[in-house]
């Protein structure tokens, strides 16, 4: 139950991060295509239902909520396809220029992840506390661990791409491409191991990764200020500078990881 609500929270943080990020990025893209409003709508929806879920103590899947999450997941998947298509159709196809400056692959993936996490939460909620749920044919804790492992490594890959674009000009830019992959590996290990034992190191590392998400916002704010005109020129620098809302994706995913950990560790007590 607790885990399910934590997942709602994870989905919420992730949705919020994507909502802000896609608002900024699609504004930059001048909403050239009406479909560019979609991610705003669905991530707002995901955010809304997650807030609802966080307060909901009942141990049943909420049909509407779950529906909303599935919709979010599907939209994310569609967005992924659309962004990939956008990159491919640019002159030169898949090359660094287009990966750097074309439609980002990571953002819609994060929407999909938000949906997936929320929906997983709904399933766990339904079965808890007696029947073990399954995700991807794995017991729920391990399945969730696999999902977050994937999410964290994906987000880390995105930040590698963007920090590479920024030439790692500040040594701190290496943090999000070194810490989270370890968290991801630890989660992958959990997905592999039988459930039921304690994992204090993993917990610690997830906490660190979650914190990195907040710290990242501060670093990005500093980055925006280093551009000419600093915050005074926010209309340009918010768009061109490092994205403020992106790093909390790590926080959202780490929260999901912690939820997975809770389920896995809880097994011991049953």
């Amino acid at each position: 139950m607790q885990a399910a609500r934590e997942l709602n929270r994870a989905a919420a943080v992730l949705a919020l991060s994507v909502l802000m990020d896609s608002a900024i990025e699609h504004y930059r893209g001048s909403f050239k295509n009406k479909a560019m409003f979609t991610p705003l709508a669905v991530s707002a929806l995901a955010l809304g239902v997650s807030a609802h879920g966080m307060r909901d103590q009942r141990a049943v899947t909420h049909g509407l909520r779950n529906g909303a999450y599935i919709l979010t997941g599907l939209t994310g998947a569609a967005g992924l396809a659309f962004h990939t298509y956008n990159v491919m159709k640019r002159t030169g196809g898949i090359n660094w220029q287009n990966l750097f400056y074309g439609a980002p692959i990571g953002a819609p993936a994060a929407i999909a992840m938000s949906g997936a996490l929320g929906s997983a939460g709904e399933r766990i909620r339904h079965y808890a506390p007696f029947t073990p749920a399954h995700i991807w044919g794995l017991p729920s804790g391990r399945g969730l661990a696999a999902l977050t492992s994937l999410g964290i490594i994906g987000t880390s890959a995105e930040s590698f791409l963007l920090h590479f674009r920024g030439a790692f000009h500040n040594p701190c830019m290496y943090l999000p491409v070194t810490l989270p992959p370890i968290a991801s590996a630890l989660m992958a290990r959990l997905a592999w191991l039988p459930e039921g034992s304690r994992h204090p190191w993993t917990r610690l590392w997830l906490g660190l990764t979650a914190f990195l998400g907040f710290g990242g916002v501060a670093f990005h704010a500093y980055g925006v200020n280093r551009a000419l005109g600093g915050w005074r020129n926010w209309r340009q620098n918010m768009l061109d500078g490092p994205p403020l809302p992106a790093p909390p994706a790590f926080t959202g995913l780490s929260l999901a990881g912690l939820a997975a950990l809770r389920i896995i560790e809880a097994k011991r007590l049953v």
Binding site: L228, N233, D240
Partner: peptide, 17 residues
């Protein structure tokens, strides 16, 4: 255009300024 420059660089793209 300084200190504010431009953001939207592609075909048919225009900054709001």
């Amino acid at each position: 255009a300084a200190p504010r420059g431009y953001v939207r660089m592609g075909y048919n793209e225009r900054d709001s300024w």
